[in-house]
């Protein structure tokens, strides 16, 4: 069974219809990539998957989104949903606190107070996010003193610390240099063993390199959704082909 399932989803910002009849199924422990030109609704769909759009005034959504068969817009507690479906944002956004407190914020939110247990979670999350060695001696220092790439990995660690099932990543590498980028790509592939990952990216090589399935978006619609290999080698839609070969106007 699919982990996340989006059915007949329409989304409006005021009068503007940003997403049109989206149908997508995301399988467990795979990396799904969302690609498409700027403004086509990738971030919007991503944010609908953990209800971050609820914060946007004038945003109206119809259709259904289910997580493990349960409708996330109906009976589910919103904070619990966001614990299960974590998010990493395009711009690294560590809180202005120490590295330790950044990671501990999530677990503490969900009721973990025990110091020893927190210490364990923090070490494990930082190790999983491949940043432990760089920060282990400065856990009490401000997270704002880290480099951009480190901050982004810290944010990934922060998201992992609440033990989500799904991890949404909105262009996590767009602000980073090639080395940090490849670190985060490796990380995503490693995390796939335990997490279901959905990643928005502008970088088609990135999608081809690390994702199992890819969805191509255009003007608020999913034009094509398929195995990454198939989509890149034998796109069935002319528009997909134009886009991935860079011939898109």
């Amino acid at each position: 069974m699919s982990k996340l399932k989006v059915e007949n989803l329409d989304l409006y910002y005021g009068d503007f219809k940003a997403l049109k009849d989206i149908n997508i199924e995301v399988s467990e422990k795979e990396i799904t990539a969302f690609i498409g030109p700027s403004g086509c609704g990738k971030s919007t769909l991503l944010k609908s998957l953990n209800r971050m759009n609820d914060l946007v005034e004038g945003c109206k959504i119809t259709g259904t989104v289910t997580l493990d068969g349960e409708d996330i817009y109906k009976s589910m507690d919103i904070n619990l949903l966001r614990k299960r479906v974590g998010m990493v944002f395009q711009k690294p956004n560590p809180f202005p606190m120490s590295i330790y407190d950044n990671i501990a914020f999530g677990p503490r939110t969900h009721g973990i107070r025990n110091k020893g247990k927190l210490d364990d979670i923090i070490e494990k999350s930082l190790r999983d996010a491949a940043i432990w060695d760089e920060v282990k001696d400065r856990l009490k220092k401000s997270a704002l003193g880290l480099s951009g790439g480190q901050q982004q990995r810290l944010c990934i660690a922060r998201a992992l610390a609440v033990e989500p099932e799904v991890l949404l990543m909105d262009e996590p590498t767009s602000a980073l240099d090639p080395i940090s980028t490849s670190k985060i790509e490796d990380l995503a592939v490693k995390l796939k063993d335990d997490y279901t990952i959905i990643m928005v990216t502008h970088n088609m090589q990135q999608a081809a390199r690390i994702s199992d399935r890819t969805a191509f978006f255009l003007l608020g619609e999913v034009v094509e959704y398929n195995d990454t290999e198939t989509l890149f080698s034998m796109p069935s839609d002319k528009r997909t082909e134009d886009y991935i070969t860079g011939r898109f106007g």
């Binding site: 949903l81 966001r82 939110t109 969900h110």
Partner: peptide
Amino acid sequence: REGSFGLGA
């Protein structure tokens, strides 16, 4: 704020 909400706070 987004970061915090996103963690389920």
